[in-house]
Amino acid sequence: MSHPRTMPPPRRRRWPLLLLVLFVAMPVLELYVLIQVGQVIGAWWTILLLILAGVLGSWLIKREGARAWAALRTTLAAGRMPAREIADGALVLLGGTLMLSPGFVSDAFGILLILPVTRPFFRRLLTSVVARRLVVVGPLGPGGPGAGPGNDGRPGPDVVRGDVVDEP
């Protein structure tokens, strides 16, 4: 007896909210923080602090990027899967991009992504996000064995059961 296949509810689209935060809320927050810091320490000190943050970011990117690259090469040479090293490289790249953009809020996030002490937390976060989005593709297609049209382990209507005979 065949059961009607029920479709899961559609995922809510998160892109519009993410884009709103990235392109509207973040610049407004950055400007607000810049103005507040400028009022407390002065405009020239604020500019100097932004330049110093960029220099520090460049140095951190160079140092941690070289470490991530060396770890990736070592792992590949040992014949192991470089999942941790790839995640570290992606975090250093993202953190570096944030550090090079002007603003104290993005600099703070960038430093957190680059520093070796805080990177494991973000690596776990990145790994969980990527793992949720992955689709397992096995030898029998997406979902692996038993991933037929009804996902109940039975093959679909296009599957013909038979035996393979290899004659010499």
Results as ranks from 00 to 15, higher is better:
residue 2 S to H: 09
residue 3 H to C: 05
residue 5 R to D: 05
residue 5 R to G: 06
residue 10 P to V: 07
residue 10 P to H: 00
residue 11 R to D: 14
residue 11 R to M: 15
residue 16 P to F: 03
residue 16 P to L: 06
residue 21 V to Y: 14
residue 22 L to M: 09
residue 23 F to A: 15
residue 26 M to V: 15
residue 28 V to A: 15
residue 29 L to C: 12
residue 31 L to Q: 10
residue 31 L to K: 05
residue 32 Y to W: 13
residue 35 I to D: 10
residue 35 I to N: 07
residue 38 G to T: 08
residue 38 G to E: 10
residue 40 V to W: 07
residue 40 V to D: 02
residue 43 A to W: 14
residue 44 W to I: 12
residue 47 I to P: 03
residue 48 L to I: 11
residue 50 L to V: 10
residue 51 I to D: 00
residue 51 I to G: 06
residue 52 L to W: 07
residue 53 A to W: 08
residue 54 G to M: 09
residue 55 V to R: 02
residue 56 L to F: 05
residue 57 G to W: 02
residue 59 W to E: 05
residue 59 W to K: 02
residue 61 I to N: 00
residue 62 K to L: 09
residue 65 G to A: 05
residue 66 A to D: 13
residue 67 R to Q: 11
residue 68 A to S: 15
residue 69 W to S: 12
residue 69 W to D: 02
residue 72 L to N: 05
residue 72 L to D: 00
residue 76 L to F: 01
residue 78 A to G: 05
residue 79 G to D: 06
residue 82 P to L: 04
residue 85 E to S: 00
residue 86 I to P: 07
residue 87 A to W: 02
residue 87 A to I: 12
residue 92 V to E: 01
residue 93 L to Y: 04
residue 98 L to G: 03
residue 99 M to D: 01
residue 100 L to D: 00
residue 100 L to A: 09
residue 104 F to R: 03
residue 104 F to E: 06
residue 105 V to H: 04
residue 106 S to C: 14
residue 107 D to W: 14
residue 108 A to L: 08
residue 109 F to N: 00
residue 110 G to T: 04
residue 111 I to L: 11
residue 111 I to Q: 05
residue 113 L to N: 01
residue 121 F to C: 00
residue 123 R to L: 01
residue 123 R to T: 13
residue 125 L to K: 00
residue 126 L to S: 00
residue 126 L to Y: 08
residue 127 T to K: 06
residue 128 S to R: 14
residue 134 L to N: 08
residue 141 G to C: 09
residue 141 G to I: 06
residue 142 P to A: 14
residue 143 G to N: 07
residue 147 A to H: 15
residue 151 N to C: 11
residue 156 G to D: 09
residue 156 G to Q: 08
residue 157 P to L: 05
residue 158 D to A: 14
residue 158 D to P: 08
residue 160 V to S: 07
residue 161 R to N: 13
residue 164 V to S: 09
residue 165 V to K: 07
residue 168 P to F: 10
residue 168 P to G: 12
residue 168 P to T: 09
residue 168 P to A: 09
residue 168 P to W: 04
